[in-house]
Design a protein around this nucleic acid. Structure first.
Lengths: 184, 184
DNA sequence: ACCTGAACACCGTTCAAGT
DNA sequence: ACCTGAACACCGTTCAAGT
């Protein structure tokens, strides 16, 4: 059987979702595809690049249309889409955040947020600061939430995991700050 | 030579700072101490626990007195202390954030932030939401900043790394949101 | 109590050789 | 172009045995 890069990425996501990030090794993935580990390096230069591709694919699969017209409602939509996309696969948040940290892929959400803040009439420097703040909030919240969800499903007794309500309230804090500057 | 747990942690920080997190293996650390890898397991149950201890020690070393009296100024002080503590060692932010993510140690900053927000007269649920938002902001910003600093010092040309100015402006966004709720 | 020596079950990556 | 087979240089962790 002959594979393409997209087959490798798809299978990587399947392994990630079923067994978790710590089990997603190049050797394990190769075995899953019925191929020698060295064969993977024909489709992907290294594991880091593969994980970046996995992150991008997770975000692509989570894409949805944005209907909001006001810039601040669109920010909430983009952030919610990002959160839902990461939560859709086991350890998805960890993978996306790591890719973003290393500057590999996962750039789409940042671009959408920047565009929304610019539409809001914010000055360039505040667009930058705001975009980063929103992204860090969504990433931090979602990694924590997914951690708690997975711990709970593994039987560990845990307090309520934050959830979508706390998520939006954290967002509103930053949006309040931004809105107070848009008219200033 | 006989070692104690604190010797192991101290040496781990030295290795971290000099060679980076990816070089901080149990085997490498053992070699650095002139001991067999298995000897480390008399002082520490596993690597995860060691890294949590490293995170806590990094935060302890970065401790400083807080002089601000207003709650919002104290928030800024706590956040700046946290950021500086993590930046003081190579990959320090990554280590502290990972420990916090896995719920191992790194709990002090959260407690200090909670106390400050409570002093501000915020209701309990907003104290929770605000603490998490501030923590995620500081963590996200500092990991990104440290990444950029290390990339720059490794010769990669990079745009200005955010720095303390952007850091405080992101913070102010959330503080604006919180302040608008304290009188409401 | 603390350490050694040896082993177990893995990693990511490279590279000559095959088809 | 894509894959195999074998190797290189590592991992974290366990455990009997020593002092």
């Amino acid at each position: 059987m002959r594979y393409h890069r997209s087959d490798v990425v798809d299978r990587a996501i399947a392994v990630l979702d079923e067994y978790g990030l710590e089990s997603l090794s190049m050797r394990r993935l190769a075995a899953e595809l019925g191929v020698q580990p060295s064969a993977l390096y024909h489709h992907v230069p290294n594991k880091q690049t593969l994980l970046a591709a996995v992150a991008d694919e997770i975000l692509t699969r989570g894409k949805r249309p944005h209907r909001a017209r006001e810039w601040d409602r669109r920010v909430v939509e983009v952030c919610a889409e990002l959160r839902d996309a990461m939560l859709a696969y086991r350890d998805g948040a960890e993978v996306v955040v790591t890719a973003h940290t290393f500057g590999l892929g996962a750039a789409e959400p940042a671009n959408q947020l920047r565009a929304a803040l610019r539409d809001g009439g914010l000055p360039d420097d505040l667009v930058d600061v705001g975009t980063r703040a929103l992204l860090h909030l969504v990433f931090g919240h979602t990694v924590e939430e997914q951690m708690a969800l997975q711990a709970a499903s593994a039987g560990a007794i845990d307090r309520a995991p934050g959830g979508p309500a706390d998520f939006e309230r954290g967002l509103e804090l930053v949006l309040d700050g931004l809105r107070s500057k848009v008219g200033g």
